[in-house]
């Protein structure tokens, strides 16, 4: 059975946020809504260096839903709005979401879901991408690994657009896949592995 994972090379990521913008465009996200962001490690804000001058560093951590194999959000959703595809991708159907936010509360990762009390405005009056999801206030949204693109045999928008090729997407259960090869040959980690949710996003160091 397929198990899609994303492998992100932190050595290659330059924090350009092309992935964030590509995601926003592809999924027609309104203003203030981001499904993936690039965090700056060790500092108080985004794009702020860590350390004290002249010993400053800028390291980035692209962050979105981790599509956990043992995802508590799937188990607690009362309306089955959050569910797992056969490929391991955890998707969220806003049309079924009742806005209870249980998924947000049980997720160990902060800021990977979006919940807006009010309807957020769109920058354009026309859809910019191919995801047909309608964004409603008081419902939870998150990264779907571009499930609508996967159905058409395409990669997630963030993977396709990364100028540094820092993101790789594929089937970890296939030993010949690029992701399997990367995880065999490079040192890597998963976020908050001690929480036991078995994230499907791997970071190469």
């Amino acid at each position: 059975m397929k198990h899609y994972v994303m492998v992100i090379d932190l050595q290659a990521c330059t924090g350009c946020n092309t992935c964030s913008v590509a995601c926003k465009q592809e999924n027609n996200l309104p203003e203030n809504v981001w499904w993936t962001e690039v965090l700056t490690l060790g500092s108080d804000g985004n794009d702020m260096p860590a350390g004290v001058y002249p010993e400053l560093t800028m390291d980035y951590l692209p962050m979105g839903c981790q599509h956990c194999a043992n995802a508590p959000c799937v188990e607690v959703c009362p309306s089955t709005a959050t569910y797992r595809l056969e490929t391991g991708v955890v998707v969220q159907d806003p049309s079924l979401c009742i806005g209870c936010r249980y998924c947000m509360m049980v997720c160990p990762f902060t800021g990977v879901r979006v919940f807006s009390e009010d309807q957020q405005p769109y920058a354009t009056s026309f859809p910019t991408g191919s995801n047909p999801v309608i964004h409603r206030p008081k419902t939870v949204e998150k990264c779907t690994f571009c499930a609508h693109r996967l159905e058409r045999g395409l990669e997630p928008a963030c993977v396709e657009t990364c100028p540094m090729r820092a993101r790789t997407f594929g089937d970890i259960s296939d030993p010949t896949s690029e992701v399997s090869e990367l995880l065999r040959t490079r040192s890597h980690f998963q976020l908050l592995i001690e929480k036991g949710t078995e994230p499907s996003v791997y970071y190469l160091t």
């Binding site: 956990c68 043992n70 995802a71 508590p72 188990e75 049980v106 160990p108 980690f189 908050l192 592995i193 001690e194 929480k195 036991g196 949710t197």
Partner: peptide
């Protein structure tokens, strides 16, 4: 990160 693995469903 420590090596103790939580039970996410219990949590």
């Amino acid at each position: 990160s420590n090596n103790v693995v939580d039970d996410p469903i219990g949590r």
